[in-house]
Amino acid sequence: MAALVSVRDVVKHFPVSRSLGEVVRRARPVVRALDGVSFEVGAGDAVAIVGESGCGKTTLGRLMLKLVEPTTGSISFDGAALGGLKGPALREFRRQAQLVFQNPFDALNPRFTIYRAVAEPLVNAGIAEAEHADRIAAAFRRVHLPDLDRYLDKYPHQLSGGQLQRVVLARALVLAPRFLVADEPVSMLDVSVRAGILALMREVRDAMGLTAIYISHDLALVRYLCDRTLVMYLGTIVEDGPTEEIVRRPRHPYSRALVAAVPVPDPDQSRQPLPIKGNVPDAREPPSGCRFRDRCPHAFARCADEPPPLRAIADGHRVACHLEIA
């Protein structure tokens, strides 16, 4: 299938405040949130982005929604470069690409009633007010909040986290978008609520034929939603392949660690030790060569000199490591 979103060589650096020494040396330190990321998302695909905190997942999601601009590189949506979108074309893009947030308690304006919150996209898209009620009712049915009269006049603090996340999803769906980015949509929710939201996300995606990006640090959750997974480490993609492959046979040493770290609700499962040590290095000064090398149990001389390229080891499976992994 043709790519709906394509991300090419995207680099995103954020300036950080300078120490006195750096001011004197005229250094301009940056956080290298993303450092050369390329991939394509086919129409109708569901792709997961996983990785440790701070590895650039959210930044990547925000770039794909044109909420921040890349330092270099480009992103295109449906063949059009996001960088050049303005005026009506940007408005059209905003109708088609939506975001679901990590923290539902913060994603809704506390001063807006639920009705106003869900009507916001309709207002911004210039849709006649006469249509609002019907569209909102339809979106609420989609997210299984059918008795909407109970919610519409409430304020966010009067709803539970699970209900709020459904409202946030309803708001994202009310304009019938084609592309949805969900940034850790269940990590703030209680376990018993999670299952319901995950099932809902999958159902909505299938029913509406959405292309979806799902951001998480937990492979166990991702597995319920996405066929394909990108594993990120310190601003780069280290593995990109079918989710089941990555879960069952992770190739990159970091993916292995990520799989090993997922807790299993069964006390009889063997507790395999975590194959890596230490913390993610400072994104201001990533290691030379392979960024994972200071934590990698297999690192060898070449890893310090050359950054490993992301190369295909099978159809639809890419890995960035110097080891012979295939």
Binding site: S192, R194, A195, A199, V264
Partner: peptide, 23 residues
């Protein structure tokens, strides 16, 4: 029993999470 079902298990073959309805 319900909590146990609502939990994702990376290694299980079941690809369904079953929520406990209600709150």
């Amino acid at each position: 029993m319900g909590l146990r079902n609502a939990f994702p298990d990376l290694m299980s073959d079941a690809l369904e999470l079953v929520p406990i309805a209600g709150s």
